[in-house]
Amino acid sequence: MPTLALRGGERVAVVATEWRDAFAVVIQGRVQLELRDGEPGPVLGPDAGFWLHGTGVRALRNPDRRPATVRIVTRPSTNPDAIHSMEHNMNDTGIVAPSASHRIRGLAATGLIATLAAMAATTLAAALAHAAGADFEIPDGGEPIPLPGFAVVTGFFSIVGTVIAAALLRWSARPATRFLWTTVSLTAISLIPPLIAGANTATTTALIALHLIPATIMIPTLTRRLRTP
């Protein structure tokens, strides 16, 4: 069973005659299809299967720095059940997508890592803002907001964002687009309370920044994951 190894950033032209009756599966890294007009096509992650004969795809490219490996089956399956399953999951580009459960597990893992990164970045930014003069005191709100509170709130809403992404992946035909618009809208709405809370300028500015920092981590990360077949 031959394999195709792509170094980071490497591009390999597709020769139509060599891909006749060939089916491939990404087993490591990611592979991007270059369409017939030269435009970038779908990015395929691990376990994504595809064939290229008759699709017009003209090249395969590794969009990442780490290596990617594609396993190629050069003889078509004679198992009717396998053929039927493959055709059932095939889209117009000649791609067989991984199962929904596999994609959701991958999304959850990505969301967890991004959540931890967002919590760390937000807490660090809050500490720096406090050292720079933001007291985080809200009028009529009692005691100043403690630094651990930023981590807890960031973690909670980051998990909520991951749940929204998983729900859209499961039930929406365009999960990445809908997730992007939904989360950008929610982020914009979340900026209203700091603006009307009546805190001093340093605290208001810091609170707005602390809303935007986790958003800039979570939204692009989960959107890219939702776009990966």
Score class of each variant (00 low, 15 high):
57 V>F: 01
80 P>L: 11
25 V>Q: 10
162 T>R: 08
92 D>E: 13
1 M>Y: 14
178 R>V: 12
210 L>K: 08
135 D>T: 06
59 A>N: 00
179 F>M: 03
111 G>M: 00
52 L>H: 02
97 A>W: 11
74 T>L: 14
153 V>W: 12
203 T>M: 01
191 L>M: 03
50 F>R: 00
107 L>D: 04
55 T>R: 06
159 I>H: 09
109 A>D: 12
132 A>N: 10
118 A>Y: 00
43 V>P: 00
40 P>C: 04
81 D>P: 14
22 A>I: 13
36 R>F: 12
90 M>N: 10
37 D>Y: 10
89 N>D: 10
14 V>Y: 01
95 I>D: 00
116 L>H: 04
67 P>E: 06
157 F>N: 04
81 D>L: 15
185 S>Q: 11
96 V>R: 06
3 T>H: 15
86 M>E: 15
77 S>G: 13
163 V>R: 10
113 I>D: 05
91 N>K: 05
119 M>E: 01
83 I>A: 15
181 W>G: 06
79 N>L: 15
97 A>L: 10
139 P>G: 03
95 I>H: 00
111 G>V: 03
218 M>T: 05
55 T>W: 07
124 L>R: 11
192 I>H: 03
206 A>R: 09
133 G>N: 02
122 T>G: 03
219 I>F: 08
217 I>Q: 02
184 V>L: 13
41 G>R: 07
5 A>E: 13
222 L>F: 00
109 A>N: 14
65 R>L: 15
121 A>L: 02
183 T>E: 01
192 I>L: 08
193 P>M: 02
203 T>P: 04
93 T>A: 12
21 D>T: 12
60 L>Q: 05
125 A>G: 04
17 T>M: 13
223 T>H: 11
54 G>S: 01
151 A>D: 05
46 P>M: 14
131 A>S: 12
150 F>A: 05
118 A>S: 00
51 W>V: 15
141 G>W: 00
5 A>S: 14
45 G>L: 05
64 D>P: 06
168 L>V: 01
182 T>R: 05
9 G>R: 12
124 L>S: 09
142 G>S: 06
150 F>L: 02
52 L>F: 08
138 I>M: 01
213 I>H: 03
54 G>W: 04
92 D>M: 14
106 G>K: 09
176 A>W: 07
166 A>S: 09
131 A>D: 03
132 A>Q: 08
49 G>Q: 05
20 R>P: 07
79 N>I: 13
78 T>V: 15
39 E>N: 15
224 R>Q: 11
164 I>H: 07
140 D>K: 14
144 P>D: 04
143 E>D: 11
36 R>E: 07
41 G>Y: 00
142 G>W: 12
122 T>S: 04
43 V>L: 06
72 I>Y: 08
52 L>S: 01
183 T>L: 11
149 G>R: 03
70 V>S: 02
229 P>I: 02
227 R>Y: 10
110 T>P: 05
16 A>I: 10
161 G>C: 06
116 L>Y: 03
190 S>C: 07
2 P>L: 08
22 A>R: 15
188 A>L: 09
52 L>V: 03
140 D>Q: 13
108 A>E: 07
158 S>H: 00
161 G>S: 00
95 I>A: 04
35 L>V: 01
86 M>L: 15
57 V>Y: 06
92 D>L: 14
138 I>N: 00
228 T>A: 12
204 T>S: 02
17 T>L: 12
213 I>F: 01
21 D>V: 15
220 P>F: 06
88 H>E: 13
132 A>I: 12
